[in-house]
Design a protein around this nucleic acid. Structure first.
Lengths: 255, 255
DNA sequence: TCTGCATATATGCTTCAAGCATCGAAGCGT
DNA sequence: ACGCTTCGATGCTTGAAGCATATATGCAGA
């Protein structure tokens, strides 16, 4: 805030003197990690990237990619680093979710975890090659119950439930809840689609997030009248029915 | 999550052995604090409790009450403790807001701050006696601009702008933004009023949060038809006009 | 080539909530 | 008794969403 008045010069000197003697390591601190839920949609459902833990604690269980926050690294920077190094992804939507601070959430020691979630189109996520052992794109099943979704389950392609490490089921539940609360007014759906998409694809992304079907005409009208999309004039190709027009995201030009 | 399968017995033994040798203090950690914005409404505006910093850094500036998170204390517990010890308040609405993790946000050392906000009725806040030096109930001015509010200013009763420490202006801006986004569907307004209140008082609380006037009839209809309030049969007293009926909050009974 | 099919896209009707104006009701003060 | 202020109800209008219907378009198969 550059509009704030500058303190008197002698206060500045006193502050400098204080800082020179401050001992940051004088008392025990909780550790801080970031955990990143990378979400995408396909087959009409939300999916998240999970990695199988190769070490204790929770060895063998499935977890969100995460890492400790460096001493000279911002939280956002740490989340970007985890996303880049553990999921092989960069330049995508990434937003802080919530911070989880229960004392016993990690059995090793006191760990506070700042949860993030990222959104990416499915083709980029399946093409990305994470360099961290065994991974899976798990279907995240959180039944629609109006407000705060139902129980959280992570399923593999065969429908088997994957056991999650730590409190990561809780984190994923909050990710889904946040996405459901936000998609009505924030352009989350576009982050899950390629640059050009049909309105049907956009609706399917919304339906996957919400876990409920939407009225087709109302959806189209709402998206178009709000000026969220612009027609490209092109149509989809190689479909066995009438091709739909391709649209692109048009960042709200209101006036 | 008790529904998860139990790992095999030998894995449990291996995990115990691992934990016995884990050294939590082996690498440098950022410190973690909580900062609590205690909000109330009166005179048609939002107000926040601020304390004047008596020590460096930022000596003399106004700050949100805060404190370091203990090694065996949850984040929510730390926020409750700060609220109790530094504002003299307990048993009120308290919710996590966002976590601020820029590297240079505190000049002492690396400090990550988990922001919380609390809501309380004005009479309880003015009656509470914080035991931490000089305090002020600052009017928080964030102009309504539709989406993400305007510039954040903290003003004393005379309208003078109070200089804020660290990134606390940013935190307060996010508090207001969160409250504005949430009040349409969450019962925030009731937290700012006594148990029994008139619909006019509730509307004034909403208007103070939003910094804009609301249509009286639409507001009444919306609140009543959503079943958010129940009439008590009593009316307000000692008013120089027709007394309005007193209502109380009725936690959404939908069926 | 013609026909059927699946989907896209446009149009109209109904329902419901919000904005807005009007009007009577209920207390208090002069 | 009268006027003032606010409460609280009623009705009208507008706009968005749900729903149904009708037409358009491209492909596949007879």
């Amino acid at each position: 805030m550059s509009s704030q008045p500058t303190p008197p010069a002698d206060d500045v000197a006193a502050e400098r003197a204080f800082l020179a003697t401050y001992d940051a390591a004088a008392f025990p601190h909780p550790s801080v990690t970031v955990d990143v839920a990378t979400m995408t949609t396909f087959d009409g459902a939300l999916h998240a990237l999970l990695v199988r833990r190769s070490d204790h604690p929770a060895k063998g269980r499935w977890a969100l990619p995460g890492g400790f926050v460096g001493i000279e690294e911002s939280l956002d920077g740490a989340a970007e680093r985890v996303l880049r190094t553990k999921a092989g992804l960069g330049g995508i939507f990434l937003e802080q979710l919530y911070t989880f601070g229960a004392v016993e959430r990690d059995p090793r020691t006191r760990v506070i975890s700042v949860g993030y979630y990222a959104l990416v189109e499915a083709s980029r996520l399946t093409a990305a090659k994470p360099d961290v052992g065994e991974t899976v794109l798990a279907r995240i099943d959180v039944p629609w119950t109006g407000e705060s979704g139902g129980p959280v389950r992570a399923l593999d392609e065969a429908g088997r439930e994957l056991p999650l490490a730590f409190d990561h089921a809780e984190i994923l539940g909050l990710v889904v809840q946040r996405m459901r609360g936000k998609i009505d007014y924030a352009p989350l759906g576009f982050q899950l689609l390629p640059e050009r998409f049909t309105l049907r694809q956009l609706q399917q992304a919304h339906e996957a997030i919400l876990d409920r079907s939407l009225n087709k005409d109302s959806f189209r009208r709402s998206i178009i009248t709000r000026g969220l999309v612009a027609a490209t004039g092109e149509t989809e190709k190689d479909v066995p029915y009438r091709p739909a027009e391709l649209y692109r995201y048009a960042q709200a030009e209101n006036g």
